[in-house]
Amino acid sequence: MKDVVATVKSNKIIAENVYMMTLTISENVGEIHGGQFVNLATGGGEHLLRRPLGVMKVEGNDISVCYQLKGEGTKKLSEAQEGQKLKILLPLGNGFPLEGKKKIAVIGGGVGIFPLIATIREHCADKEFYSYMGFRTKSAVCLLDELEKSRSLTVVTDDGSFGEKGNAVEAYLKDAAKLGADCIIACGPPVMLKVLKQKLNERANKIPCFVSLEERMGCGIGACLVCVCKKQNGENARVCKDGPVFKINEVNL
């Protein structure tokens, strides 16, 4: 975990309101795993908080993140020019624990697909990924070339403008029995994760399921207790340090 200065290598639009930024980091920051995130400065001095973004790709000294335009911070990020320096704190949090797993179902929605892509990239040589990715509409669909590193890929959209009409959770559940995965990993909007939890529990799902959560952050490293989620046992967990990946039945969604 280091706070370093990175150089913007490229920053381009990859779908409607979604950008991919590649940053070159000359310092050694240690291994980065799929599901981990970074805390990126926006480059705007008035923004005192970093923006937490999942790592999408690591290639040599370059790391890529993808972000959807939301408010002031992501707007500022979208204006970053090639060669600009941005501070970045990384790697943060825990990745998806896939030791011993072979056949993994991947459920992603919206910007939740990015940390899942990093995970697929990291392990696709020795594990099989079966991906179910949901987007709002055709213009939001992106990074199909990365997603296709999965053994199979099902893309659905809310309005049916690309792939089948529907959502990623339904699409997975339709296949679940015949797929026989030994693990599920998921990341997406809170409502998607909530529905996933409910449906898995209704079906008395036995295979482990890990989800990656989002919460507003301060320090990003576990010191300020700003980013908590509630665990099923009533205790608080820090999304940044104890997560962002949790067992689906360990946390309240």
């Binding site: 008035e46 005192l48 908080l49 919460e215 507003r216 301060g218 207790l225 700003v226 908590v228 989620c229």
Partner: peptide
């Protein structure tokens, strides 16, 4: 409960 943090210009 969360959210516990917000940002303003040059403040949090």
């Amino acid at each position: 409960p969360v959210p516990r943090i917000a940002e303003g210009r040059s403040v949090i």
